[in-house]
């Protein structure tokens, strides 16, 4: 079974990934799937009624608000980074966590490099499919690199201004 790096109880681990990512035109295998927002909007009800877990792949140009109504039924959101420099999915993840209270997995897919680890963890992304072969140890090191942070964010780390109080 394929794997992804998962943040669980503050630890980064390589864990098995029960989800299969399915393209819009591909046939559906049995089991848990990740599908596009478009496909979810037409086939989501059917798939969920079959008892599978369904994750939704959210492209950077898609509005996170389109998912809000269905969040209680969604097993995970895979936010896409088509290029490392495309930072729209940081906003999507942060809003999912902070504004819409989504507590299940948010997974980073696409050009996911360890240099982004600190930013991704801070906006509440907790699962990673790195494109650079980096390991859970690399991610743990990268996300713990800065002993202090200056902002409030979705990871609930204490910002410097609160540490100072």
């Amino acid at each position: 079974m394929p794997t992804r790096i998962k943040l669980q109880d503050g630890e980064y681990r390589l864990v098995e990934d029960p989800f299969t990512t399915i393209g819009d035109d591909a046939g559906l295998p049995p089991g848990d799937v990740i599908i596009s927002l478009t496909r979810f909007q037409t086939e989501g009800d059917q798939l969920l009624s079959e008892g599978r877990k369904v994750g939704v792949r959210l492209e950077p140009a898609e509005e996170v608000e389109a998912l809000v109504y269905d969040l209680p039924r969604i097993a995970l959101v895979a936010v896409v980074f088509p290029k490392y420099r495309d930072g729209r999915s940081y906003t999507a993840a942060r809003l999912l966590r902070e504004r819409y209270g989504f507590e299940r997995e948010i997974r980073a897919v696409g050009e996911v490099l360890r240099e982004q680890a600190g930013f991704m963890a801070r906006v509440g992304i907790d699962a990673f499919s790195p494109a650079d072969g980096s390991t859970p140890e690399d991610w743990a090191r990268a996300t713990h690199r800065q002993r202090h942070v200056y902002q409030r964010a979705a990871d609930r780390r204490t910002p410097a201004f609160a540490e100072r109080e």
Binding site: G87, Y90, F119, V123, V149, Q151, A153, A154, D155
Partner: peptide, 13 residues
């Protein structure tokens, strides 16, 4: 300066 340093959301504008 502090708020913008390694900002989690706004470092890949």
């Amino acid at each position: 300066r502090q708020w913008s340093s390694l900002h989690p959301e706004f470092s890949f504008l």
